[in-house]
């Protein structure tokens, strides 16, 4: 990983995402609720990102483009992201020595831009790729 701002990402589940998932995960509604990252206002300013703009998130395991969302509370250096196929692309998948699979917290490099928000079809294509 190089460039961008290093952030600790915590995943969570939101009611509107849960609703859209029940309606169907291939819908625009599910993508809109899942492919987002809630950022601290100061971090957004530093990164030159505005609410609704694309943000490129990258780890050693993968990368996605999601939409930025301004958090109401301050949490510099920490970002919150719905647990979804988008956040799953960034997880290492390695089981720790304690036998635990990390799904809730990871470190990313975040930068402004990256094009349009990644679609679930593009995620499926990455998973299918050799």
């Amino acid at each position: 990983m190089a460039g961008g701002k290093e952030l600790t990402v915590i995943t969570f589940r939101g009611i509107f995402q849960e609703v859209e998932e029940a309606r169907g995960m291939y819908s625009d509604g599910y993508r809109d609720q899942s492919a987002v990252v809630a950022l601290d206002g100061g971090d957004m300013k530093e990164m030159g990102v505005e609410a609704g703009h694309p943000v490129h998130l990258e780890t050693a395991s993968g990368d996605v483009v999601v939409a930025a969302k301004l958090s109401e509370e301050a949490h510099p250096g920490v970002a919150f992201m719905p647990a979804s196929p988008w956040s799953a692309q960034l997880l290492s998948g390695e089981v720790g020595e304690d036998g635990f699979l990390e799904l809730k917290m990871f470190t990313v490099r975040a930068s402004s831009g990256g094009g349009r928000v990644t679609s679930i079809e593009e995620i499926e294509a990455v998973i299918r790729a050799p």
Partner: peptide
């Protein structure tokens, strides 16, 4: 739906 919930490396 483990393919959606698990890390991409495991989903692969």
């Amino acid at each position: 739906d483990p393919a959606a919930a698990l890390p991409a490396a495991i989903a692969k």
